[in-house]
Simulated scan of single mutants.
Amino acid sequence: MVLSKRWSLVWTMVPKLEYKDTRKEGDKSVWCLLDKSLQLHKATVIESLHIQVERQFCDDADVGKCVSYAVDHKVRELALILPSQPKILQLPSNVYTSKTLVKLTLSCRTLVVDVPSLPCLPSLLTLVLLNVVYKDQNSHVRLLSNCPALRHLEVQRNKSDNVTRFIVKVPSLKSFTYMQIDERAARSFVLDSPGLRCLTLGDPYGDLDSIQNMPHLEWATVCHFLPYPNDNKFLRSFSSVRILWLTLTEAVAIRFQDLPISWNKPSSVPVCLLSHLEIFVWTEFGGKRQEREFVAYILANSKCLKTVRTSPSYYLKKKEKEKKMEEFKSMYRVSASSQLLLCTKQDMWI
């Protein structure tokens, strides 16, 4: 790339920097360009630095130096989206004490989150941690507890993640996305964020019994297969929601066809069913006893229900699908005005 003298001067003052190298092969690396461009950069403030690389680094790549430069220049948004590397990567310590960072995105399987004893990110509103590794069991706790303004958190975990008990206690948090598909039973998840309004939880095999204190939750999507959580406590955690999407049986149909679905009737009806729930969707209805009991309980106690959508299990034959849909249709609905829609899986969300 060649720039005229006029534009070369303008380029050194741009506040938003984005470097992307999507090539899978090649000798030249974006890091050489990045290092030279930062040396020539003259802006006193860097509004954002976004680095995305899809192949392993060369030996002279200095990620820490680039990140440290951006933090020293009061960067507000920082994103590192990197592939796994042959050596461990660490962020410079000034990242964890930045007073200007508003959004931080980290994605790399060999990036170690090594939080110092006294971190402080007073302006951080959005934190995205995708497939990173933590130095110890409390690194993420120290990080989250020192983000007093944090409103949006996204966490995606993989098998390299060494934390066995992931704790999220952030009073200021408004939206939270948590995804982890590791089948190791030793992992557990603790959520205690009273200000939370939106929750997306994809933890098919984890321990979800420690979800609590969400009085303002309005919207939740939950994907959980086995083992099932303590049902009474689990449902009560979502008693304030207006929209609740539950995926509880699909994995049973796909991977555990001989195992029964476990569900126990709560001792009292959750408030969300009595006074909030308006739309109920159940995909892949197979008609097993526990499925029927669960659906019957929802329909019999949801007084504000307006719409019910369901589709038969993909694994049933045509006549069996028709039979199961008739069973669903015959269930008592306390909300007599509610509309029942029997759909195929393809038009469930139309």
Results as ranks from 00 to 15, higher is better:
Tyr297Ile: 03
Phe285Thr: 05
Val14His: 08
Leu305Pro: 05
Leu121Ile: 07
Leu38Asp: 06
Pro260Gln: 03
Thr283Glu: 13
Arg289Ala: 12
Ser175His: 02
Asp347Trp: 03
Leu208Met: 07
Ala251Thr: 08
Met214His: 11
Val222Asp: 00
Cys147Asn: 00
Gln257Lys: 11
Pro229Glu: 02
Leu143Lys: 01
Ile181Lys: 11
Tyr332Gly: 04
Asn146Ala: 04
Thr12Tyr: 07
Gln137Asp: 15
Gln137Arg: 13
Arg309Ala: 05
Leu199Thr: 00
Phe294His: 04
Asn146Trp: 02
Tyr205Trp: 06
Leu129His: 01
Asn230Pro: 03
Gly64Asn: 05
Lys324Ile: 10
Phe280Ala: 03
Leu259Asn: 14
Ile279Trp: 09
Ile261Leu: 06
Gln180Leu: 04
Ser262Asp: 13
Asp203Met: 12
Leu340Arg: 01
Pro86Glu: 04
Leu299Met: 09
Ile81Arg: 00
Leu111Lys: 06
Val128Tyr: 03
His73Lys: 12
Arg55Asn: 10
Ser302Leu: 05
Thr247Ile: 06
Lys74Cys: 10
Val170Arg: 00
Val222Lys: 00
Ile298Ala: 01
Glu293Trp: 05
Trp245Met: 12
Thr22Met: 14
Lys233Thr: 12
Leu226His: 12
Val102Cys: 06
Val113Pro: 00
Glu326Thr: 07
Asp209Phe: 01
Asp203Tyr: 08
Val10Gly: 04
Glu154Ile: 13
Glu322Gln: 12
Val67Cys: 03
Asn301Gly: 07
Val241Gly: 01
Arg157Val: 11
Lys99Tyr: 11
Arg255Ile: 01
